[in-house]
Every structure is written in C-alpha cells, then in structure tokens.
Amino acid sequence: MFSELLIAVIASEGGGGGLLDVNPGLMIWTVVTFILLLLILKKIAWKPILEALDKREKEIKNSLEQAENAKDEARKILEENQANLAKAEEESKKIIEQSRTYAESLKEQMLKESKEQSKRLIDDAGDEIQRKKDAAFEELKEQIAELAVNAAERIMKENIDASKNKEIANKYLGEITKN
C-alpha cells in the first residue's frame, strides 16, 4: 500500500522527467538483494562478530575487575604486613624497655646487696680486728706483766721481795692500759 502511494507521489512529482521515475523491477531487486544480504550476514557475519565483541568486552571487564581485586588484595596484605611490622616493633620496644628496667632494678639490687655484704664484711672484719686486738692486747698485757715481773724479780732479787714489786708493777701497767 505504502509503496503504491510512494510511487504515485513520486511519479506525479516527476512528471515523466525520468529522474524520479520509480522502476518497480528495481525495487523488487533491491528488496530481494537487501533481505538476502540481511539473512546471510545475520547468520554468517553479525552473529559471530557481535558475539566475539561481547565476549571480548566481557573478558576485558573481567580481567580489569580481577586486576582491581588483586590490587585491593595486595594493598590489604601490604597494610596487614605494615600493621604487623609496627606491632612487632612496638613489642620489641616494649621487651627492650622491660628488660632494661629489669636490668636496672637487678643492677640496683645487686649493688645494694653487694654494698650491704661488703658493709657486713667490713663490720665483721672490724669486729674481728677489735676482738683480735683486744685479745692481743690482753696477751700482750700479760706478757708485759710477766716480763716486767721477771725483770723486777731479777732486779728485786737483789734487794726486795717479789710480791711487793708485782703489785707496784700491776699498778703501773693499769695506768698504761687506761692511757
């Protein structure tokens, strides 16, 4: 219907000039050629080409997504690693700090102990010395007294008796000790 209308319109416009004459045979040829071409190409060309394009686009999209995912994953792992590293550093710092304080306290304690010990040793030694000194002094006193008595005896043998001389000697020795 439409083609007839179109032909009628164009034929009336053309007025037999030739240029606008519509050749119905040519129209049939066109329709047949075009539809044949459409059917053949649809099966042979468009379907595989469009499918290939779709497939490739999907593949590119997928690979891009995968790459994006891998990048995210890598970033996550990197962040994790950095966090772990920071934690480890923190920990090691803490451990070092702890050991340092421990060592400090240990040192202090040991120092105190050794000081105490040395003080004790010194005190002991002082006491011992005092004791020994006292003992030695006592012995010395006796020996001196003995010596003095002997000496006085030897002197006095000549003139006075021994007991009176010993008393005198002890009195003198006592005075010496007090000094």
Binding site: F2, S3, L6, I7, I10, L19, L20, D21, V22, N23, P24, L26, M27, I28, T30, V31, F34, I35
Partner: peptide, 10 residues
C-alpha cells in the same frame, strides 16, 4: 529513487 524507496519501505 527506486532503491532508496525500497530501503525506506523496509
């Protein structure tokens, strides 16, 4: 015009 008309009809 016949060709273009046929294409236009399609």
């Amino acid at each position: 015009i016949a060709v273009t008309a046929a294409l236009a009809i399609l």
